[in-house]
Design a protein around this nucleic acid. Structure first.
Length: 297
DNA sequence: GGCCAGGCTAGCA
DNA sequence: TGCTAGCATGGC
């Protein structure tokens, strides 16, 4: 199938997005090169490998599959737009950043970086729960084991691409099944419970996204394993809510300590007070601050 | 060896 | 309503 182009709105920088996608060598959900990223999409009945590259007209999307229908093409475009937050007008955030001593230099460094997320609700919730209270590197290790054990893969041109485990598969597991992967029993329980809710239909992104942000947040908080941090994280990364602000986040605290030149980490109250000026863009501010923590990869 | 990691729940006052 | 132990393990 011939490639197609997704136009983008300024500010947008494909290289900055690519650098973010390369942040962990342990990432299994996509494969990057110097100029492209490939990701396997599951379209309900088949897999399609998708490659994204920069083109002067926008993002070039190449599909490694014959006879992709127009409906499937539209689904893939939608997924890519959600994944890279392409429908966002970032200009208000740029204006806000220019008036903020912490954000100004960070925004200039990574200008055009989008809040890259997890369009799939099960993946977003699972990744957030995995990441609770452990180092990111260990979180990636756990995710890799989980995906390689329960996800599906296709090997194309000698490279293996994975899709995230489907809730239908995880819903059939007992939490004990995840213990050998070094999940804590609690996390395993939360993840299996959430998979069951999704399969049973009591938890669905399609239903939640109809609701106001505050109501989505309340629904998420009712799930075992989901506290304030996780609810805001999932609002940011799955519902693309730019104002969702995980005030308790350890990485955010570390970044603020560094950029404000503090000798200790800020308290949650101090974070709230400082973040008040990011009204509506707390999630983007947090994302850029996280980005500032891991250098230039 | 101690403490912190992109926290949350259950149990107790 | 507010506080804390316990969870699991890697990395500094």
């Amino acid at each position: 199938m011939t490639p197609f182009i997704i136009p983008v709105q300024e500010p947008f920088d494909f290289q900055q997005c690519l650098i973010f996608l390369k942040r962990s060598k342990q990432e299994v959900m996509h494969v990057t090169t110097d100029e492209s990223v490939r990701k396997l999409f599951y379209l309900g009945n088949r897999f399609v490998l998708v490659e994204l590259k920069w083109d002067p007209e926008g993002i070039e999307v190449l599909l490694f599959e014959q006879d992709v229908s127009e409906e499937e093409r539209i689904v893939i475009e939608r997924e890519v737009r959600d994944w890279l937050d392409l429908d966002r007008d970032l200009q208000p955030f740029e204006q806000l950043a220019q008036q903020d001593d912490v954000l100004r230099p960070i925004f200039e460094s990574y200008r055009g970086l989008r809040l890259i997320g997890f369009p799939d609700l099960f993946e977003a919730l699972t990744w957030a729960i995995i990441g609770q209270q452990i180092t990111l590197s260990f979180a990636y290790t756990l995710k890799r084991r989980f995906v390689e054990q329960y996800g599906e893969s296709q090997t194309i041109e000698g490279v293996t691409y994975w899709t995230f485990p489907r809730p239908e598969v995880i819903a059939t597991l007992e939490p004990e099944a995840l213990r050998p992967l070094q999940f804590s029993y609690r996390k395993a329980e939360y993840i299996c419970d959430i998979a069951r809710e999704i399969v049973e239909g009591t938890l669905s992104k399609m239903a939640l996204r109809q609701l106001p942000t505050e109501d989505i947040r309340k629904h998420l908080l009712q799930l075992r394993g989901v506290g304030e941090w996780t609810a805001d994280y999932v609002l940011m990364k799955c519902f693309q809510e730019p104002s969702a602000f995980p005030v308790a986040d350890a990485g955010l605290h570390q970044a603020l300590m560094y950029h404000l030149g503090l000798s200790r980490k800020p308290t949650q109250e101090e974070v709230k007070r400082y973040g008040a000026q990011w009204e509506g863009w707390g999630g983007y501010a947090t994302f850029y601050l996280w980005r500032s923590l891991y250098g230039n990869v």
